[in-house]
């Protein structure tokens, strides 16, 4: 146990060799703590940690570290997401220290969606550092006990460092190398973009395993159940870097009226079954945004309950 980097529940579950299961929740567009508590209550005991998004799609919400702190109060482990869009290196480092001080132990390092997508497209973007450099920064603070400028810091933030990987973004042939770079920068775990194109993902994982990346880092496969044909079509067309095969859209359409959501869940369950057996996959990251109440059912039907106590 002394070898643990952070001692987070997620790290303990993974290092004990269990198949990890993480969830996700977006903070409220306002200071509505009750709504946040209601959403996360569905996830309690169902997942090993809950990602708290950081102004996702560049829409302003409650700060991810504050929402993460509320999760801790509720007895749920957060995976604090941090993007490089809104903070320079001063704010990033002080937020890392603050997050650690309030009990946060997992952090997912992201570049962040460009503000042009969001509700403040007039904003000045920051991007002082990128996600790769953020991973290295968090590792430096934890392992060397130093700020980016080499100054010593008083009590290092012992965080379990996560990063994202999108096997489906272009150029796809470079994606496994970018994953390798994130691991070399210091990522302890990876959560992938939502997977729908299983053929491409199998190929991606085979390359990752051939390069031995799964031995250096825990890779969690991203799953988002489709609620409707409209959602599938929107993701296929409008979300950059998302690969939704036509065959899946046809399958959802073929399910018939009122049964699409169930078909979407069935597809997700089939995926999870395959991921459990897939070499190099250490767990599943379920992004059921605004569908948190469905997580217990999905976890149950996927045979992922009860969650291990470590």
């Amino acid at each position: 146990m002394n070898d643990l980097k952070s001692g987070s529940n997620l790290e303990k579950v993974l290092s004990a060799g269990h198949f990890a299961f993480t969830g996700e929740c977006g903070p409220p567009k306002g200071a509505n703590i009750d709504h946040l508590k209601e959403k996360i209550a569905h996830l309690k005991g169902m997942v090993d940690a809950v990602n708290i998004t950081d102004n996702q799609t560049a829409v302003v919400r409650m700060s991810s570290w504050a929402a993460s702190a509320i999760l801790i109060q509720e007895g749920i482990e957060p995976n604090f997401q941090m993007v490089c869009r809104d903070r320079n290196r001063l704010a990033i480092q002080s937020d890392i220290l603050g997050a650690y001080a309030v009990g946060i132990r997992n952090m997912l390092c992201l570049s962040g969606d460009h503000q042009r997508f969001g509700n403040h497209p007039q904003a000045k973007n920051v991007f002082d550092i990128d996600s790769m450099q953020l991973i290295a920064l968090a590792k430096k603070m934890r392992d060397e006990g130093k700020f980016l400028n080499e100054e010593e810091l008083d009590v290092a933030p012992r965080l379990f460092i996560g990063a994202a990987s999108n096997p489906f973004a272009d150029p796809t042939e470079f994606r496994v190398y970018r994953l390798a770079k994130k691991i070399a920068s210091g990522a302890d775990f990876i959560q992938t973009q939502c997977i729908y194109n299983m053929d491409l993902f199998r190929d991606f994982m085979k390359k990752a395993v051939d390069m031995g990346l799964h031995e250096k880092c825990y890779i969690l496969a991203g799953v988002t159940p489709m609620k409707s044909v409209g959602m599938a079509q929107y993701m296929a067309k409008a979300v950059p870097g998302m690969d939704v095969p036509e065959s899946l859209i046809n399958r959802l359409r073929g399910a018939g009226k009122g049964k699409t959501a169930e078909e979407g869940i069935k597809f997700a369950l089939e995926q999870i079954e395959e991921f459990k057996e897939m070499e190099g996959v250490a767990g599943v990251h379920l992004m059921a945004i605004e569908w948190e109440h469905k997580v217990p059912e999905i976890a149950e039907r996927a045979g992922l309950l009860p969650r291990p106590k470590v």
């Binding site: 990128d130 996600s131 450099q133 990987s165 999108n166 973004a169 150029p171 470079f174 950059p240 870097g241």
Partner: peptide, 9 residues
């Protein structure tokens, strides 16, 4: 970004 491309490419 100095270590791109990001996942939105």
């Amino acid at each position: 970004l100095l270590n791109g491309p990001c996942g939105g490419s």
